[in-house]
Simulated scan of single mutants.
Amino acid sequence: MTALPSPAPAAAPPPAPERTKHRLLELLKRGGPQTVQDLAVGLGVSVPGARRHLIDLQEQGLIEARTERPGGRGRPQHVFGLTDRGEAAFPKTYSTLCVDVLRHVQELFGEGAVLQVLDARSAELAQRLRDDLPDTLPLEERVRRLSEWLTGAGFDAVVEPGEDGAWYVVERNCPNLTVARQYPQLCRSELGMFVGVLGVPVTRETRIACGQGSCRYRIGP
């Protein structure tokens, strides 16, 4: 009896799209800006396939395209690199570093020194923001611009109108949560910055660092 031929081994399934995108981000993180051809080789996919993933990541704001000359000479070529948002997708130890620095400040100079350091930082930020939020603008416009800046800084902020003429800024994320939980002076300093920028009373009603779902600020009378 003639033996039947063994079935051919099944082809390995293609990598999941999200896994491929993650590998693409890792290639850019480790190798810096690269062309679509280089990335296709690194991923083991076709150039059109790599381009599709690049377009998706661009739409998500994780990478950006720019034109560079290799080694500063030669024909310009399009390369892709990580944006700040793309960089933020990788683990960072900034919060640990910040906590360590504030702990040493407190041990060396006392608890009040921590607030002084954070207040100085907030005052500098407020000075920068005043250029974009001049007193000549209506309060609503200034609150909305502040909310946009906060969102860009990672706070995922939205503006809500109040029933009595006040406005509310609601921060749905706290990028500084690790620090804020150990040093509430950071939240006090943020509140002072809002007052310094807007020039009106500001009251914090809820706080993420206390276990609530958002940091909610009432702005105005």
Rank of each mutant, 00 (worst) to 15 (best):
T2Y: 08
T2M: 12
A12N: 13
P14Y: 09
P14L: 14
A16S: 15
P17S: 10
L24Q: 01
L27T: 03
G31E: 11
G31V: 03
P33F: 01
P33E: 01
P33I: 01
T35Q: 07
V41Y: 04
G42I: 00
L43P: 02
G44P: 04
S46D: 13
P48F: 04
A50F: 03
L57Y: 00
T67L: 15
G72S: 04
G74S: 10
G74C: 07
V79I: 12
F80S: 01
L82M: 11
L82Y: 07
T83A: 09
P91I: 01
T96D: 14
L97N: 06
C98L: 13
V99D: 07
V99C: 15
D100W: 07
V101K: 05
V101Y: 11
H104G: 08
V105S: 09
V105E: 09
E107M: 10
V114K: 00
D119W: 07
A123H: 12
E124G: 14
L129D: 05
R130P: 01
D131T: 14
P134R: 04
T136W: 09
L137W: 10
L137Q: 10
P138A: 07
V143Q: 06
R145G: 06
E148S: 05
L150G: 01
V158I: 09
D164I: 07
A166L: 12
W167R: 04
W167Q: 04
R172W: 02
R181Y: 02
Q182K: 13
Q182F: 07
L186Q: 00
S189R: 01
E190L: 15
G192R: 05
M193Q: 09
V195L: 06
L198V: 05
P201W: 02
P201R: 03
R204F: 12
R207Q: 14
G211S: 07
S214V: 08
